[in-house]
Design a protein around this nucleic acid. Structure first.
Lengths: 203, 203
DNA sequence: ATGTTTCCACCTAGGTGAAAACTT
DNA sequence: AAGTTTTCACCTAGGTGGAAACAT
């Protein structure tokens, strides 16, 4: 449970599945990016509290770059090493909103989920897809932004609250590098069961 | 393509899959209602045009009762007959909104779909579920309502446009009565394949 | 060499009508 | 007897990691 005293409010944001995020973070979280888009696992879900029930907000996600270096995974030492200078995202801020603007009341009464968000290494085009760079680091950042009009025309003048969960940073990859990450994904993601535990042999 | 000249606007609402709706209507559309909730098929989807792009609207669905009679299906004559006086819905207007308020621009640029809506014969409780009465008639009605605030607090004073598609009226049932309705559902709904066409025998 | 793309078997999730069991 | 509820096989839809093919 994290408190962020920001501005005149005392907004409380709780990251869901925090333990799981921490387990991945210890191994060095890897997120697969594909051309058609791949979900994040774990998904970014959070409970937000203490917003003004009568005001309206939009919740966004930005993908920051802690650095713009290119990394390489060294198998024999099980570590990530810098392998080059890498690239900066052409669009500096990638943000995706799970829903339209909603009241503080509505947002606080439910879980804000980015589970349907997909990561891609294709050019930024489709809405709901976030375009990242393989073998580089990213840090998701939650932005809670107050809006005065439903059409968000005055977004630049509105108050904005920024929360970062360090344990959600990850390396974007097109194929898993650390086998322990793969194992934990299989163990914890219901969709990922590989060909291991059932004892079935591959044909 | 239906034109409804309402108030100062010339709103155009087009029912999707209109031919399919008409085919069902000829047979006497039946919609299954269950305790856990069942989707409508066909789903109510529509394209809305000529809303003011800058104003904001909410699109709702109401389930009217053309009458409050109880019906019975007579197999040998393949007809519905009145069998009793029936009941009136305890909550007179059942409306479900697919989304939060959105701009006319946003609404007109996409298909407004109520495909996720579920019909139930349980007490009205869960959001997104509509509670109906078995063996009685219902007529869905689309309500496009202008909102001035995102919290919809002044909903009663706002302009509202009502559109009804007569071919979407139906009988609520817990089991299909007319075998031709069943056959058309199986033929047209990808989820409904029964045990007929594959030639597979039931164990 | 090393990283990317495509395809695929396997899985979850959940929408169907049919049949059987249940209720009244 | 007539309508409701439950269960179930079958299906669509789509999220996984693995392996092989491909690119650089």
């Amino acid at each position: 449970l994290l408190h962020h005293d920001l501005s005149d409010s005392s907004i409380v944001v709780e990251l869901c599945h925090s333990d799981l995020w921490t387990s991945f973070h210890r191994l060095g979280t890897e997120m697969i990016i594909t051309k058609s888009g791949r979900r994040m696992f774990p998904a970014l879900k959070m409970r937000i509290n203490n917003l003004n029930p009568d005001k309206h907000y939009i919740v966004r996600l930005e993908f920051l770059q802690p650095d713009t270096r290119k990394y390489r995974y060294i198998y024999h030492s099980s570590r990530w090493m810098v392998s080059g200078s890498g690239d900066k995202l052409t669009t500096p801020q990638l943000h995706v909103s799970p829903e339209r603007p909603a009241s503080g009341q509505a947002i606080c009464s439910q879980t804000v989920s980015f589970e349907r968000l997909k990561l891609t290494n294709a050019e930024p085009s489709r809405t709901g897809q976030v375009s990242l760079i393989s073998m580089q680091k990213f840090q998701p950042q939650v932005v809670i932004q107050e809006v005065y009009n439903t059409d968000c025309s005055d977004v630049e003048h509105s108050e904005q609250y920024v929360i970062t969960f360090p344990q959600t940073s990850f390396m974007a990859v097109t194929a898993y590098q650390n086998q322990q990450v793969t194992t934990l994904k299989i163990a914890s993601n219901p969709f990922a069961k590989g060909f291991r535990e059932s004892g079935k042999a591959r044909i």
